[in-house]
Write a protein that binds this DNA or RNA. Structure first.
Lengths: 140, 140
DNA sequence: ATATGTGCAAAGGGTTTGCAGATAT
DNA sequence: ATATCTGCAAACCCTTTGCACATAT
């Protein structure tokens, strides 16, 4: 994903295109799930004047426009990611890495819909914890 | 679940049996997912001298002993529940109710295990958002 | 020109901590 | 008798807010 794309995305959502916003989106695009501090510390290199408050304000703005999503992880700090194609999260209990895992959960959602009577099941937050390949290999 | 059971559970985990702990567990058993404030306000009726700090300390202690679990919801406040049989959560976008939904997710877990290479997938936090029966009915 | 966004500092809210006294075993 | 727990107050995050200035359209 290039700068131009972020510019487009912001334009579509009628958010002004500022260097801070581009930097936040670039950072998340490059590094995946990040905490507010991660983002702040990384973009400070490019934009030394940036403030934490601006990062917070933008995270809220970008979330309300569905450009970002928050990810709830077992370790308490809130993380954020760019709202891209649907995926679930895998969390390794050993190295505490958080991974995206793209699978089609529509069958599972349909089953839940039928069994529960809930309509419009469209948003899901699925996190499984286990031991990743690398950590499994190390343990042997 | 009766008092006696909570007493037993605490004894097993080598935690001292105090009125505060029993009250917290009773509250969660009765009302399901609750925030710290929910718990604090409800048990204050029985134990007016109880402090917020004690509720926090006990939630941490009970969580580390796997008696309680935290539930991550779309609304920011952390909720807690007694660690009972596996279930997923349904969150109604309209009334913001959080419901337990007991289903067997072992097939889903197996599928994820095979597709991802993760071992020991045993803990899952699954939350689906949709519109509950009651709210669907009201909308028509 | 005007609405929006930024940075600062202060305030807010939720959670944790240290300590002295109380309670459970 | 002793380890643990409780309640209080203070400390500590992380996050939000108000305001004046700066920037994007």
């Amino acid at each position: 994903m290039s700068d131009t794309n972020f510019t487009e995305i912001l334009k579509e959502k009628k958010l002004k295109i500022t260097p801070q916003r581009i930097a936040i989106l670039e950072e998340l695009d490059k590094n995946g799930h990040s905490t507010v501090d991660d983002i702040f510390n990384r973009i400070k290199i490019k934009i030394p004047s940036v403030s934490l408050a601006t990062v917070y304000k933008n995270i809220l703005a970008l979330q309300s426009m569905d450009i970002l999503k928050s990810v709830k992880t077992p370790t308490q700090k809130q993380k954020y990611e760019i709202n891209k194609k649907p995926h679930i999260h895998l969390f390794c209990k050993i190295c505490e890495k958080l991974e995206d895992f793209e699978i089609d959960i529509s069958d599972f959602q349909d089953y839940c819909k039928n069994a529960s009577g809930y309509e419009n099941i469209e948003e899901a937050s699925i996190l499984l914890t286990g031991i990743c390949k690398e950590c499994s290999a190390k343990k042997i």
